[in-house]
Design a binder for these strands. Structure first.
Lengths: 177, 177
DNA sequence: AATCTCATGTAAGCTGTTACATGATTTA
DNA sequence: TAAATCATGTAACAGCTTACATGAGATT
């Protein structure tokens, strides 16, 4: 039984073998859009996966003081990952700081609340523009079965989310005028 | 400097004085739609808020072995809460297990993926129906300034989110057929 | 008689963040 | 020569979950 982070790492390694450093880079972009971890967390989790026999590694030298370790998913790791993919996700409790602030917004100066939501709207519009650019960079529309489909579907989810958030911010700004 | 949980508790206490038990109940419903905590976490956080002078309490007896403690926000607590409301929320890293599963879905049996998304769609449609019912239970549409506006705005955010998620699940099911 | 609600707390453990520690190679 | 990138690890701490512990009063 691995943690979700373990499966995130396995999902990356299922596509190609990588060093811990490279996995950490992926956890910023593009996997970072839906799962993130710092390098310290990744190195620790890789140790656990190694103990569990879900990954193996091959050391290669340089550059740097320590040898580079190229991790690879094992057949056992792939089997566990496959099982996990279609298992129902465990519900995470919602924690949304902006909505919490909204809940307490009756205490605040309306002008300041307006500024807060204008800022948030700008953030979501910027992300939307970024996602639209990435959408362009996909040549065609990948279909299910293609490994690229995962990234495509995630991007569509991100676009929908940012649109919903931007709409809500606009509605809030309307309410404040 | 309080944690976000501290401010969530202060936001509840700003509306009316409550015992730890009652705050925990609120953290399931309706505040639970955007912030949750278990009773053990709440009791611990209340101790910190008490030490910081942001809340005070009055003990009242019964029922139960220990006295009931009715917590009340202090002027200092209210001032800190007011300041926090319009401060920019600190960005939480995205962690979305369903999207992560989608990223790895190329490894799985399409029929199983279809089942997973059909299940998720049902979850979001059920929540949508629940939120619609709650929307009805609001008599009119509260306006900004009314404490009830916070709950109303949060509900509208929730409705938008569930619609976006349901749409994405439907799109995924389309892709799988 | 059993279970549910009210009521507060402690403790162990996991997850995740931030800072510390080292050092070679490449680029500006 | 200074900084960025590559590269791996440890340690301290904060946040959160789950289980343990107790017990009165109300309901079934």
């Amino acid at each position: 039984m691995s943690s979700t982070l373990g499966f995130a790492i396995l999902a990356v390694l299922a596509r190609s073998e990588r060093s811990g450093y490279e996995i950490a880079a992926r956890m910023r972009q593009p996997v970072g859009y839906f799962w993130t971890a710092s390098h310290s967390q990744i190195h620790g989790e890789l140790q656990k996966l190694l103990t569990g026999g879900l990954v193996g590694f091959e050391a290669r030298h340089g550059p740097g003081p320590q040898d580079k370790k190229i991790y690879r998913i094992t057949p056992e790791g792939l089997a566990e990952l496959r099982e996990w993919v279609t298992a129902p996700p465990r519900a995470r409790p919602e924690r949304d700081e902006l909505v919490l602030k909204t809940y307490a917004s009756w205490l605040a100066d309306p002008a300041e609340v307006r500024r807060l939501f204008a800022e948030q709207l700008a953030v979501h519009e910027a992300r939307l523009a970024e996602y639209e650019r990435e959408k362009e960079s996909f040549g065609g529309e990948p279909v299910f079965g293609d490994p690229a489909f995962g990234g495509w579907a995630a991007l569509r989810c991100g676009l929908g989310y940012e649109r919903h958030r931007a709409d809500w911010c606009r509605w809030m700004l309307d309410q404040l005028s």
